[in-house]
Amino acid sequence: MEPLPIQVTVNGRTYSAEVEPRLLLVHFLREVLNLTGTHIGCDTTSCGACTVLWNGRPVKSCTVLAVQVDGGEILTVEGLEGEGQLHPVQEGFWEEHGLQCGFCTPGMMMTAVALLNENPDPTEEEIRKAISGNLCRCTGYVNIVKAIQYAARKMREGMSVHAGGV
């Protein structure tokens, strides 16, 4: 089929490309842009290894066509770190041993980032519900919950410091 032109901002950088309409967003990220931090773990929109933020919302990039995000903004795991500073969620996953094989981790972190943007102080139950579209086979989730709680604390502290004008 005729390739279609798209323009997408990924991690703050704008890319123009011509893509087949059927090209999945995850393949666009991994194979066209070489952003291989976003992974593929299933065919049925079940595992969430491919989770990215599309205009701020976490979505499974294996179930979005690249043409759909034309004009939109995508954030992937590669865009989390800002100027050499780990995102609190990245830091939390490291501190609290929230990952083992690392394969689900980028998707899991993207979901966590979106959760904390919306709900800065989630309960354990809210965290577990929020990440229930992301499968992890290694950790048993306990430390992922702790990692997100760590990040939540860290982000709240950051905000209060900021609000206090320090």
Partner: peptide, 11 residues
């Protein structure tokens, strides 16, 4: 972990 949390693992 530093590579995994940055999406820089090589699978």
């Amino acid at each position: 972990d530093p590579r995994f949390i940055r999406g820089k693992g090589t699978y």
